[in-house]
């Protein structure tokens, strides 16, 4: 008799190759000493092999067209259901987080939009942070033309953007943080223009501040953070302005800049 405690379940798990190697070795030692158990195990193994010999040929048979068509139809419905399910869950989690939702981007986002769209909680179009991140990703790497009007014509920039947005906008001064203004540009928002200011530090790292007047009414918000690929975004709503600060710098570093920007805008 083996000194190992071997149960019936062990023998089956052994036959079905469900044991870790160490336990497997113990069972083998047990079987070497227990011919009755060894006989059973051999029989069970023979059943397994026999069942495969009997029925595996079915796997290679052509599948009747009626079954294939029905399966394809169910797959289509399951897929639609799966996509809706994921979209709904995403939507719920975003709403729970208290974020004004617009779009998640991509087909999934559009699907979520089209299917389940609680109108009250959604601002139309693309969300502020996503807008800001995309604009940052598009323009900040541009070496030759990152802005439409450079900081050397800051007065023109301010006048132009203020006129186009219909409210006075002015780039905060971030020199104390090591960021100098490069300039700014006008961008299409969801229903009209938004402004983007671009800054750069001594190392050439750029950050952009998106200023939008297309914010949902309903009051100020705290800082919120979003990550869109390599771009980190802090954004907030202050009065009738939405601000989004984007950069490819670490979150905590960006948070300090954002706090400063907020302070500048408050005290202006």
């Amino acid at each position: 008799m083996s000194k190992h405690m071997v149960t019936d379940d062990d023998l089956h798990a052994y036959v079905d190759a469900r044991l870790p190697p160490a336990r497997r070795a113990e069972i083998e030692a047990h079987l070497a000493a227990d011919s009755e158990a060894a006989t059973r195990v051999r029989a069970y193994q023979a059943h397994r092999q026999g069942l495969h010999d009997l029925f595996d040929p079915v796997l290679d048979e052509p599948i009747p067209a009626s079954l294939r068509e029905l399966a394809a139809e169910i797959d289509t419905r399951l897929e639609a259901r799966g996509t809706r399910f994921v979209a709904r869950r995403l939507l719920r989690s975003r709403i729970a987080a208290g974020v004004l939702i617009a779009s998640f981007g991509g087909a999934l986002g559009w699907l979520a939009h089209g299917i389940h769209r609680p109108a009250e909680t959604l601002a139309a179009g693309t969300s502020l942070h996503r807008q800001a991140a995309v604009a940052h990703a598009v323009f900040s790497p541009d070496v030759r033309r990152p802005v439409e009007i450079g900081a050397d014509h800051e007065d023109q920039l301010v006048t132009w953007l203020s006129k186009r947005l219909g409210v006075p906008v002015r780039p905060p001064k971030l020199a104390a943080l090591g960021y100098g203004l490069i300039g700014g540009r006008l961008l299409p928002g969801n229903s009209g223009p938004v402004a983007q200011f671009m800054y750069q530090d001594a190392a050439g790292r750029r950050l952009t501040l998106l200023v939008s007047t297309e914010v949902a009414t309903g009051g100020d918000t705290a800082f919120r953070f979003a990550q869109e690929g390599p771009v980190n975004v802090f954004y907030w709503i202050d009065g009738k302005f939405g601000y989004a600060l984007s950069a490819g710098i670490p979150r905590d570093e960006l948070a300090r800049v954002a706090a400063d920007v907020y302070g500048h805008l408050e005290n202006r």
Partner: peptide, 15 residues
């Protein structure tokens, strides 16, 4: 989700 999920199960279901 895989759009062929059920079709891919057919051989095993038949077996």
């Amino acid at each position: 989700m895989d759009s062929r999920a059920i079709i891919d199960q057919l051989p095993r279901l038949r077996r």
